[in-house]
Each structure stands twice: as structure tokens, then as C-alpha cells.
Design a protein around this nucleic acid. Structure first.
Lengths: 359, 359
DNA sequence: GCGCTCTACTAGCGCGCTCTAGCTGCGAGT
DNA sequence: ACTCGCAGCTAGAGCGCGCTAGTAGAGCGC
């Protein structure tokens, strides 16, 4: 499987060629799976390569070939949903003959730095997860290479976008809760995180549609556990709890669930909680979170296909794939405490009884 | 900031050079921050580069320079602790003048595939997070390039390793719980995950040291929420709960906390829970998990320094950095229900009262 | 004037690969 | 016989850069 090359250098095509007694070009053909090499020779080349531990050098390959056939993915590493997306990107990219490079943004390494790294590695396409870049910035990137953002819109920029019909998902959530009899439905929003604005807007619209304008309650938050925890504390500190909370995403819902759990509040008995993402978290057997399912794999596939098609034809107009989400009703949503059936459309604003569990 | 190059090609050094009216080599000097270019020229070169939107091509750079100065990081994307590690790798690598490439293993993309990708991108060093590769496999990799594994040992293989003194951490956990008066201390282990074997072993040893051999209870699990949930259900289905549970890591502890919370069990009133990792999760204000702190940033720094030093001198013997962990006592551990002080070293094996909260 | 050093710059090879153009030999067609 | 085509192979340019060896010119002492 392995033999050291004279000089300890990493073996090159020339080494393989010499060993087999053919030209470099022939070895190249074999490794690119191109016609033009005899069956027998092909076999011998592969054998020799294996013996030498030869591995094609993608830097050189990249340089020689005009195109890099590499897709760069920028991610933040802290959203489990992004992990799901990445797992969807790999197989689809491989299927289409593309390589994938990952670059994380992090504290001290902002988004543009992460993107620069990808570009300098010659990624010809970029998939941005959880990007908070401005439209102008996206547009600039979009002219340089094929770009798709996932999880947000990017109208006005020369980039493709793949996201969920946030509005539809939110509407399903509110409808579901209202049908169960809820009226005091609060929303913990995601601040500036991708998708948050749409979810907030849709929540407001859906509440209005149900004549629950007066009940609209948006608690500022973020897409993480801390926001859920903070919101939970806020609710607990108040006179009465909402009967249902629609959290900005699953992580936020988790934080909320935790705080409610520790305060002895029964979910869904006293409070219903619904999340958004359907990430690994919510699948977990016993957490059993009602949430809105976004199909990570399909989103990833769309994204990869978008950038690949754009690479083939850069004159394409920006496209937007809006996938329908699906409410997944699990164990954290049920009828509110007092409701025996669905509530009528009366406008009584008082909740039947005050909720407040001791610690 | 940007102008299209004739032909729409990505601009190269030659383009910049021509624009300024100097040679290619001069531009190269400027971009490598090497002496030999006049102050004025340097400024003009950078200016022109900016106007053209020039970005050095790392493939070409890599190829020309013998060394790639690139560190590849393999990760699984699903452990928040790994995200913390990656965030530590970036700044240290940058400080030492190295580039970082990420590659994820995932279902359908096993570890060796992820590593192959890194190697073919000419990473000269590898940092493996959560590797489950065999010693033989690691050894093979270690001869090909500079390799460090984080979070596990790799004795016998030609690779460096950075991990926590799992034993010490576990001992602190058990000591802490015993001092609080606990005797029924169960451990949810991490199966084959990195570090799990050591934690399990240390748990057994620590229990024996406290003459609690008879109380040793290892529940098979994994380093994720599901395992904690499953273990929680198992405990709840039994006649009596352990008074304390030491979970294999924080995610597992989270799952356990959740299950206990929903069953109305008071933590730490009835059951104490301690995790391992001190990942973002446990910091969260209201979760407030007692856990064992592993310093991700320091681990990452060690790892980067190890591989860099090994690149400078490949004859180095394999080294092992074992960092001392630190028990962080937060809100999920307290004295067991009956204990008023610390328990004496008697060998009564019955718990003072059976615990079992209704659902 | 000479040689010397020092700064600022340039010429050009080579990294490992891809790819176009061409070369060889052999069987089939006319 | 002589093309022709085709399968199987090779020569060699060039991708964008780093780097070594070198050159031009300024400044300086003698």
C-alpha cells in the first residue's frame, strides 16, 4: 500500500509513470477516467500508484485545469441545523463531481474572512449558511463567483437563495395552536438571524388573521438556548404565562423547555411550545418537540444544483428555491389548560385562570 | 474595490504587475511581506491589487512553495465541543502563519474519506477531532504527515495527542459527589466515543477507592442527548433512582436533565447530575450544569503547536499533552435527599427512601 | 577614477498537473 | 497497393505562483 519515494517527497505522477514505464500523460488519463488508455495499462498504473501511495495533488490539478470544481461552504459551526445541511451538501456535490471545502466563521473570524479563505482556495462556488452579510456585499460576491445563500432571502443581489417558506410554516404553527384553543401565543424571535424577520412578520400576520391582534407578543431573542432561557424567565416573572410559545428555532425552544421544566411548569399541560427547524434536537425521542420541519437534505441539494448550474451558465438570473415546510406535531403542543374544545372567535382577552407555578 | 479583468478571468499577479508597471516578482515580494520593495511601490502595488480585486491563488502558491502551510482539521460537526476546538485552532494557526481547512465526517462520508480530502488538498498537518480510527490507521497517517488527535490517546502510533486527564476529572466528580453524601452514583458511558473508555475506567476506580464497589453502575450510552434520555427512562423505570448520575458528556447530561425534568424529578434535590466538557451548553445561565471543564482553546493551541513543531522536525518522538480538567460545580449537584452532612464511610447499601416521582 | 556595498528591482525556472496536438502501428476499405 | 480511421500512447506548453541568481544604479571611501 505504501513505499517511500526516493527523497521522502510525496510521490507524483512522474514517479508512477516511471514505475510503470509509460508517460506522465497516460497516468493523467487513467486518473481522470478518460478514454485513451488500454485496459491492461490502466490496471498497471493504478497498481503502481497504490504501491507508491500516490494521491493526485489537487492544488496542481486545480491550477492546471481552468476550473477547480470546488464548492466552498461557509458555516458557523454552532447551529445543528447547519450540520444537517453540510451532510446534505457532501453527497450531492460528489455526485456532480465537485469537491467541498468548509470554512467556519467564529468570534474573531468574521464572515468575510471565512469567505476570503474559501475564495483564495479557488472555490468557484460558495454556499453560505447563516450568512448575515448585507445585500450589497452578497451582490459583490455574486459577481465574483456563483453564490447561493441558504436560510434567507437575497433579493436584489446577484445570488441564488434556498430557504423555507417561513411564512407558511409559521402560519401552520399559529393555525395549529389556535385550533387547539390557544389565544395567548407568544413568539420568541431570532433578532437578526437568518429567517427571523420573516418568521416574526408571519407570526404577526397570522395572529391578525385570527383576530388575535391584541394578543400579539414578540419577545426579542436569538436562535440559541440562552434566548429561550431568558424568555422563559421573563414569562415566569410575569403575572401569567402565555398558553403557547412559538420559539424562533429549536435551540431556543430547548432553552425554554428547560426553564419551564425546572420551574415545574407542565408542557404541554400548561404551556405549549413549538420550535422551528426540526434539527436533530427535536427528533430526540423524549424531547419530542413540535416543530416546523425544514428538509435539510433537499435544501442542500437545491443549493448545490443551483451553484453548479450557475457555473455552467453565469448569465442565469438569480433564482430562489422556496421549500414548503411542514408542521410536525409532537408532544409539546396540546390544548390550553381550560379549553375543552376549540375556542370560539369571541374576543375575551382574559385567560380563564392565572398560571404561575412556584419554583 | 473591483474591476473586471479583460476576459473575465480572475486577476493574477501579472495583471497587477502590468497595471503598476513593475515585474511579477515585485508583486510577489509585496504580497509575501518580504523586504526588497520600496515603500512607495509597495503602496502602489497593494492599491492596484485592490482595484483589480486580486487575491493570491493559494493553489498556485502551494504548488510553487514546497510547503503548503495548511493544517487540515477533521471533525464530526455534531459535538459542540468540537466547534469550540475549531474556534481555538483558527487564531493559533493564523498566528503561526498557517492556513486551516475543515473536512467533516458524516454518515456516508467516513473518517478516512474526510481525511483523504484534506490530504489531497495538500494539508501537511492533520488535527483529528473525535477520531475513532485504529492505532494502525493513525500510525500510517502519522508517517505520511504530521498528525495530532484531540480528545483521545494514541499510544503506539506515530502521532501526537492532546487530551484531558480524564481520570483526574472523573475522580474530582466522584469525590465531589461522595463528599456531598452520595453513594448511589451511576455513570452513563460514551460507548466507543473518544475518551469514553478512560472515563468509564476512572469512574470504576474512583468508586472502588471510596469503598463503593457495590454501587458501581455503568449504563451503556453515547455522547449525545438520546443516550441521556434513554438512561433517564431506564432509571425512571426502576424501583429507585440513583442519587447522582455522572453523564459521559454534556450533551448526554442534557438529555438526562430533560427526561428527569419532565418526570417531575427535582435536580439537584432528588438527583444530582454532572456532565463532562463544559461546552457552550453547560454555560447556559439557567441550565447551570455541574461539569468538568476542558479548556478547548488551550487544547487547540497545543494541538496546533504540536503539528507545527513536528513539521519543523519530523524526527520528534510522539508527544502527549494531558491537560488538567477542572470540576466546575454549578447548580445540578447537591447533597442527596436524606443527607444532612457528609455521609460516613459505613457500608449501608440501602438508600434512605425510595424515589420515584409520578409523571 | 576605481571597487565596494546596499537597495530596488527583474529574468526565468520549476512546482505537479491538464490538455491540445500529434505520433505510431494496425486492421479495414477501395 | 494506398489511404483512412482509430485505439493507444507521448511531447510539451502553460496554469499562477515562489524563489534563486542576477542586474542597474545610487552612495561611499580612497
Amino acid at each position: 500500500m505504501e513505499e517511500t519515494t526516493p527523497g521522502g517527497r510525496r510521490p507524483t505522477m512522474a514517479d508512477v509513470a516511471k514505475r510503470v514505464g509509460v508517460s506522465r500523460a497516460l497516468v493523467s488519463l487513467v486518473f481522470r477516467n478518460q478514454p485513451g488508455a488500454g485496459e491492461e495499462t490502466r490496471r498497471r498504473v493504478l497498481e503502481a500508484a497504490d504501491e507508491l501511495g500516490y494521491r493526485p495533488d489537487s492544488a496542481a490539478r486545480l491550477l492546471a485545469r481552468g476550473r477547480s470544481r470546488t464548492i466552498g461552504v461557509m458555516l458557523t459551526l454552532h447551529q445543528p441545523f447547519e450540520a444537517d445541511l453540510v451532510e446534505g451538501v457532501y453527497p450531492e456535490a460528489e455526485r456532480l463531481g465537485y469537491d467541498v471545502l468548509l470554512s467556519a466563521s467564529a468570534p474573531g473570524r468574521d464572515e468575510s474572512k471565512a469567505v476570503e479563505a474559501l475564495l483564495s482556495h479557488r472555490c468557484e462556488a460558495l454556499i453560505l449558511l447563516g450568512s448575515t452579510a448585507s445585500i450589497a456585499r452578497l451582490d459583490e460576491l455574486g459577481r465574483r463567483s456563483a453564490v447561493v445563500v441558504i436560510g434567507r432571502t437575497a433579493r436584489g443581489a446577484n445570488v441564488d437563495s434556498v430557504h423555507t417558506a417561513e411564512g407558511k410554516g409559521v402560519r401552520q404553527v399559529v393555525n395549529h395552536l389556535v385550533e387547539l384553543g390557544h389565544r395567548h401565543i407568544a413568539h420568541i424571535d431570532g433578532g437578526k438571524e437568518p429567517g427571523a424577520a420573516e418568521r416574526r412578520r408571519a407570526y404577526r400576520a397570522a395572529m391578525r388573521r385570527h383576530q388575535l391582534t391584541e394578543e400579539i407578543r414578540v419577545v426579542p431573542g436569538a436562535h440559541n438556548e440562552d434566548a429561550g432561557i431568558a424568555a422563559g424567565r421573563l414569562f415566569l416573572s410575569e403575572e401569567r404565562l402565555p398558553t403557547a410559545v412559538f420559539a424562533g428555532n429549536d435551540r431556543c425552544a430547548m432553552g425554554l423547555l428547560h426553564t419551564l421544566g425546572r420551574a415545574g411548569i407542565d408542557v404541554p399541560g400548561e404551556v405549549s411550545v413549538v420550535g422551528f427547524d426540526d434539527s436533530h434536537l427535536s427528533h430526540l425521542s423524549h424531547i419530542d418537540l413540535s416543530t416546523v420541519r425544514q428538509d435539510a437534505v433537499r435544501m442542500a441539494e437545491h443549493a448545490v444544483r443551483f451553484v453548479v448550474e450557475r457555473l455552467d451558465d453565469s448569465t442565469l438570473d438569480p433564482r430562489e428555491a422556496v421549500l414548503d415546510p411542514k408542521l410536525v406535531v409532537r408532544g409539546t403542543s396540546a390544548a390550553p389548560p381550560s379549553a375543552t374544545g376549540s375556542a370560539g372567535p369571541d374576543d375575551c382577552r382574559c385567560s380563564p385562570r392565572g398560571h404561575r407555578a412556584g419554583h
